[in-house]
Design a protein around this nucleic acid. Structure first.
Lengths: 213, 213
DNA sequence: CTGCATCCGGGCCGATACTG
DNA sequence: CAGTATCGGCCCGGATGCAG
């Protein structure tokens, strides 16, 4: 990308991550390291030459590295993009109430709204395992030691299983739909939905910013 | 911009703000409402047709409105972009240690590092007025009632005046330069620099997220 | 003078084909 | 599997024109 040529942190940051597709590539890598073909699958619509070119420039900028097994992963600095990325997703949340239409969906993308909704540490948060079946592969939401984690796999013995179309699942997670509304949109619930509600950080709780681990 | 066609908050957000120049336009409007010509001046390098086109699409998306006097301003939703924008700037801070080179500079851009460095409310933060003379026009940093504000004007009776080249001023603000290093780079200080240090939020302080006002 | 619109060359994007 | 090559088209960038 051509540099903006401005002595400004925003402009210089956008010189690195402002190109089309770049932040979506980072979204994929935030979940974990990925192979080239996995990135292609997680980024429906991207041209393969563009993906290669973006990975190359992200490598040069120090955001991404390619390890010995040929997998791509974020550098420590690249991991720091989670904050800007979550901030954009949080800001864009109202846009998710528009129907899914012909938009593509991949279940690992659920990690994003979950990270936005259940961010931070709350020691009062109960232990819980939730399996979500929306889209191609199941994902597991797990709450332990006050934090909420998302992984792209099925759960061993989930306390709660949600099944349904992606937009209704996301609407339910984000509070745009209640249990009745979600059911109307084809969501089925196995277990007690209230347990999921209990995962939300309470207003009076102390939010501790996690140190790097 | 062509939509990514992905049911994902990040992708849908980038459908709105992912275009080249768009976030820099928002940066300009975060400081306050601006006329078209003021935007052109604050965005060195932008083509006028691109600015017009971006403003139009931001208007359609509900991020920007044009008021009766022909001035552009952010909607309430548009103001919400401050968080993603600050997050990107915070992430990109290391890039600001590279020399300014041929990069353009406008003093209102100082509002960004100041917002990043002195964000949040700290009741123990002392009252202070600082005038910064870097680039074309002076800006004033003011600390009152625990918060720090930046405005593109000169101060009435500043407690502290910093004068110097933009990169050295930013380096000093961000802690990449100390007093001696900044002096070496041409920064002159009238007043006690320690007072500026006292503005930084103390680690033990309670950070209160401001409610909308 | 402000606030754009038009025009045009060049570069980036997007889709597909192809290769080690 | 992991990209490279190619090419049409659209978007960007810079200059200029022009209406209120």
């Amino acid at each position: 990308m051509k540099s903006y040529g401005q002595f400004c942190a925003l402009a210089r940051g956008l010189d690195v991550i402002g190109d089309r597709w770049t932040l979506l590539i980072v979204r994929e890598l935030l979940v974990g390291s990925r192979r080239y073909s996995e990135l292609v699958d997680g980024l429906p619509g991207i041209a393969t030459n563009l993906l290669a070119e973006r990975l190359r420039s992200l490598d040069e900028a120090g955001v991404v590295v390619r390890d010995t097994e040929g997998r791509y992963r974020l550098t420590e600095w690249g991991q720091g993009l989670s904050e800007p990325l979550y901030a954009i997703a949080r800001w864009a949340a109202p846009l998710m109430s528009a129907p899914i239409g012909d938009d593509a969906f991949r279940s690992p993308w659920l990690a994003l709204p979950v990270a936005v909704i259940f961010s931070g540490v709350d020691p009062r948060r109960p232990r819980l395992t939730v399996e979500i079946r929306a889209g191609d592969t199941p994902v597991t939401i797990e709450s332990r030691s006050g934090r909420v984690w998302v992984e792209p796999r099925s759960a061993q013995s989930p306390d709660l299983v949600l099944t349904g179309p992606p937009d209704a699942i996301v609407g339910l997670l984000m509070g745009a739909l209640d249990a009745a509304g979600a059911a109307q949109h084809g969501v089925t619930v196995e277990g007690d939905l209230q347990e999921l509600e209990n995962l939300r950080t309470q207003p009076g709780s102390v939010e501790v910013v996690p140190v790097d681990e």
